[in-house]
Design a binder for these strands. Structure first.
Lengths: 181, 181
DNA sequence: ACTGCCATGTAATTTGTTACATGATTAC
DNA sequence: GTAATCATGTAACAAATTACATGGCAGT
């Protein structure tokens, strides 16, 4: 979902395709790092759909297209942001969204996270039940990949718990010792 | 890399596309779970490339294509399996390979895992250095996604450590208390 | 002069998905 | 008889990649 990363970045300020790519490499390469070959055509497509607009500028003799988000783009982005994630283990959609949660209210974020936690927990349980039924017929490596899934989900749940505590703690100015997150 | 999952499954025994899909859902859906719309065309393509062959059989009045791997397919699969993974966070290639590591020697596996550990550690360090340089200009959520990456890599390293201990422990009949993996 | 970075873009290809279409068997 | 499962397949579409192509500026 490259489109939403681009919209998210353009929410903050106007940028060129090149600048967006740089920012992606720095801050989102962790879960998404598109190439120029997908960024530029996507920007063009979004411009046609009136989600973004651009000005042609010349800086230091260099030709640039400075893209900015439109009202239509902004509202479509926020709407996407508010939609709860369907979870799939190697789908970075939720990180993509979470990265931009600053554009939502704390309360809304906590609710979204909580609903996501439920989904993750149910995935964890699915794996746990597969493990229970089929461990005996599983080899070391098959079992290891299953453990990977379980540990992955567990990590996500812990990570979410810490994040939630950080958000609510920040809001209610709690005692919680949160320096560590 | 659907092709290698299919080859991997067919290494074990002859199967129909339908059976493969079932097995995937049960055992690899954790990291890959292709649809019929990709399995069947891929099987056809692999058959043309002589990586697999099939027999038409009729069982319980049902028409089936029972696919089996060829020597060419087997050697291409093993070659792929031996190639060290290029790591990318939301790329399940290494799980895909690891799932089939039973077809390699323990020694080879330990070496592959060890080389992979190095890659993961270097990714972890990349994130850590980004964090060090840019925490001050990062919002809560941006930081959270970065922490996700770090914790994810940490989890992988721990998971690999346990797996390595299990493999070497098994081989050398060590004292190690490995019941827990 | 040459290398590296800035900046944009296209074309071909890869790798899948979803939706559709068919038809047989099994269990209720 | 009808719903679920077994079994295969195609067509249209989606989302992104890699490789290629262009050109200007800045520093050595």
């Amino acid at each position: 979902m490259l489109i939403y990363v681009l919209l998210g970045f353009l929410c903050e300020k106007d940028m060129t395709g090149y600048e967006i790519k740089q920012k992606m490499t720095l801050s989102t390469s962790n879960f998404i790092d598109a190439s120029f070959g997908s960024i530029y055509p996507m920007l063009k497509k979004m411009e046609k759909g009136e989600l973004i607009k651009y000005e042609e500028v010349v800086e230091e003799g260099r030709f640039k297209k400075s893209y900015g988000i439109t009202e239509k783009g902004k509202s479509e982005f926020i709407e996407w942001l508010k939609t709860p994630c369907t979870f799939s283990p190697f789908n970075y959609e939720y990180l993509n969204k979470l990265f931009f949660y600053k554009y939502l209210d704390d309360l809304e974020v906590v609710q979204l996270i909580s609903s996501f936690q439920t989904t993750v927990a149910s995935e964890y349980n699915k794996l746990a039940s597969i493990e229970e039924k089929h461990v005996h017929e599983m080899g070391v490596y098959e079992h290891a990949t299953l453990m990977f899934g379980k540990e992955y989900y567990q990590m996500i749940m812990n990570w979410h718990d810490r994040l939630t505590r950080k958000i609510t703690g920040k809001k209610e100015n709690e005692h919680e010792n949160d320096k560590e997150f």
